[in-house]
């Protein structure tokens, strides 16, 4: 039976994992390689690393993390953050990541999706999208870039459809309104985008308790759910969450 995926997200800044609330106030939560290995043992289905390193010179540290993770964990993982050229994509893929995600860079230059997909295949190219409710937009949601700081004149639903057409193989949809709040995923947004595209959708932002994942799979039509704070601070383990989902009759890898 095809299963819903639990994706653990690790924000990495200069080689260390951090976690922020609403994209701000980052605190150190550990070594990314050790954390990746722990989540792998706990039953995570996939990992996502976001490189939030500010300077370009320190990007090499991330490549080193990717290489080490690829040697130790045998589940898929993707890398996002600061990827804006084909060379960036190549560096990350060759270091051992399964996929890369583009976010702000794709809004500024949509052809990166097309070029990346033709070089490495659609399955390698993930569109990361930060969206927030805005009644003035056609779908009711607006796209933001630069870590949620800059509002764009771009509708979230229209952008998702365009990215699919350009060759994105998956969408990670982050709700800025829900991110870090632990009050649940933005179900309305998730359902609307997931049911409007033919590629898998990973819901992101807002998970605080296991029932939030039940909701996003049952009511939000998500194919995968991204979690961070829930597991980083020891409130839950991936195994706890999967047990809960299993009881709720949601197919997950046990």
């Amino acid at each position: 039976m095809f299963q819903k995926r639990i994706v653990v997200c690790l924000d990495v800044k200069e080689g260390r994992c951090t976690k922020g609330i609403k994209f701000k106030d980052n605190i150190d939560v550990g070594d990314p390689v050790e954390m990746a290995a722990k989540y792998y043992r706990d039953g995570a289905d996939e990992l996502v690393f976001y490189d939030i390193t500010a300077s370009h010179e320190k990007r090499g540290i991330m490549i080193d993390v990717v290489r080490k993770v690829a040697e130790q964990i045998f589940i898929p993982f993707s890398v996002g953050g600061g990827i804006s050229t084909l060379d960036d994509i190549k560096d990350v893929i060759l270091a051992g990541a399964e996929k890369i995600s583009v976010n702000s860079s794709a809004v500024k230059n949509p052809s990166i999706i097309e070029e990346g997909a033709s070089l490495f295949g659609s399955q390698c190219i993930v569109l990361g999208m930060d969206a927030a409710a805005d009644p003035s937009m056609p779908s009711g949601y607006r796209v933001f870039i630069n870590g949620g700081r800059k509002a764009m004149d771009l509708d979230a639903l229209a952008w998702a459809k365009q990215a699919e057409k350009l060759g994105a193989g998956e969408i990670v949809l982050n709700s800025i309104d829900a991110d870090g709040m632990k009050t649940g995923y933005e179900l309305n947004l998730t359902k609307m985008i997931s049911e409007s595209v033919g590629i898998p959708l990973v819901a992101s932002g807002g998970a605080g308790v296991p029932s939030h994942l039940t909701d996003v799979f049952k009511k939000g039509s998500a194919d995968a759910a991204l979690i961070a704070s829930m597991v980083h601070f020891g409130d839950y383990t991936v195994a706890d969450i999967k047990k809960h989902l299993n009881r709720e009759r949601i197919a997950v890898r046990m």
């Binding site: 659609s122 193989g169 898998p200 890898r253």
Partner: peptide, 15 residues
């Protein structure tokens, strides 16, 4: 076939 209402690619874990 995408007409089956399934997402393509078949991406993820399956038994």
């Amino acid at each position: 076939s995408s007409q089956m209402g399934l997402k393509v690619p078949h991406m993820g874990w399956n038994t």
